[in-house]
């Protein structure tokens, strides 16, 4: 069984009459690159603030590496974070800022500072003052701070904000490297689904403080890819017809009355004819398949409708 890095249970945050996060459940396994997807103000940052202790929980609980309550406090040292915009001392250089946090965390090996700066391509700006940094550089220093001391869990809130396309691509490679080579668990939030899709292996969709769906990349691919949706009264028999009569093998039985056919050569009229000829009731057949953005819009639409 996979180790759970972070788990929330009915996590809720209320500000007077406003509920920023409403009974959110989330499970992040060790080694995951977990994408937190939602529009601006959906509750992504609130979720991150709660689990990092920046704000107090109204209801519910969470555990970090299996520890909850005050024991979770000790596990904080295993977390690296970048919540909202990166914040550092303007009068200090990139190196001095990270050195300050090395002192705080008790990191004696200062080589880690240069390693963190190198991982975000900031080696050349090592001795530049933070106040002279561009937005992208600030963002990268924030990520370097999160990676300091090789944490087991890295939480990044909108890390690609302000980065140029090359910077985004480099960062993507860094995330993959951290996950594959060091086994670091990453939780990354973004409102740009396509960017998260490029790196994450699991996703949590969130809107208006409510968790909409938690899916793996495979499930997302399945739900977004183009297919024929077939609805009959007997899926078992329908599957046999697809295989034996039409030689279609690329399909998936979704539930008791729905089958999705991914075979691009499959003809809807032929499928419909065979189903009817074999005395099955055909409730419907239609093409499906949406882009990631449309998929997200559909999810959000379901909440608001």
């Amino acid at each position: 069984m996979r180790e759970i890095a972070l788990q929330t249970n009915q996590l809720t945050k209320r500000y007077k009459n406003f509920t920023a996060l409403d009974r959110a459940d989330m499970t992040v396994y060790r080694g995951d690159i977990y994408g937190l997807v939602g529009r601006n103000g959906a509750g992504k940052t609130t979720m991150m603030k709660l689990v990092t202790g920046l704000t107090n929980v109204t209801e519910g609980s969470f555990s970090i590496f299996g520890k909850s309550g005050s024991a979770a406090e000790k596990e904080k040292k295993r977390i690296g974070c970048l919540i909202e915009s990166p914040a550092f001392f303007g009068n200090l250089t990139a190196y001095q800022n990270l050195r300050y946090y090395c002192f705080q965390k008790g990191i004696t090996d200062v080589k880690q500072i240069d390693e963190a700066l190198k991982s975000v391509s900031l080696t050349d700006a090592r001795n530049k003052k933070f106040k002279t940094f561009s937005l992208g550089m600030k963002q990268r220093l924030g990520i370097a701070f999160a990676l300091l001391d090789n944490p087991d869990l890295v939480i990044l809130d909108e890390p690609i904000n302000g980065l140029d396309p090359i910077g985004i691509s480099e960062l993507r490679d860094t995330f993959r490297k951290l996950s594959q080579e060091k086994g670091i668990t990453l939780i990354i939030s973004s409102h740009i689904l396509s960017e998260l899709y490029a790196v994450a292996n699991r996703f949590l969709f969130i809107e208006s403080g409510k968790v909409l769906k938690e899916v793996t990349k495979q499930q997302l691919d399945l739900e977004c890819s183009r297919c024929l949706v077939l609805k009959t009264d007997d899926n078992k028999k329908a599957a046999t017809i697809l295989e034996d009569k039409l030689d279609i093998r690329d399909y998936k039985v979704i539930d008791s009355c729905e089958i999705r056919v991914y075979d691009e050569s499959a003809k809807p009229d032929l499928i419909a004819k065979e189903i009817v000829l074999n005395d099955l009731r055909l409730f419907g057949i239609h093409e499906s398949g949406v882009s990631l953005e449309d998929y997200f819009k559909q999810l959000v639409g379901e909440v608001h409708s």
Partner: peptide, 19 residues
Amino acid sequence: CGEFSEHTVKNTITSAISK
């Protein structure tokens, strides 16, 4: 005050110690 004006207080609280 330096910590609040630069918003760096969150860095310490999220990764080193509690509030």
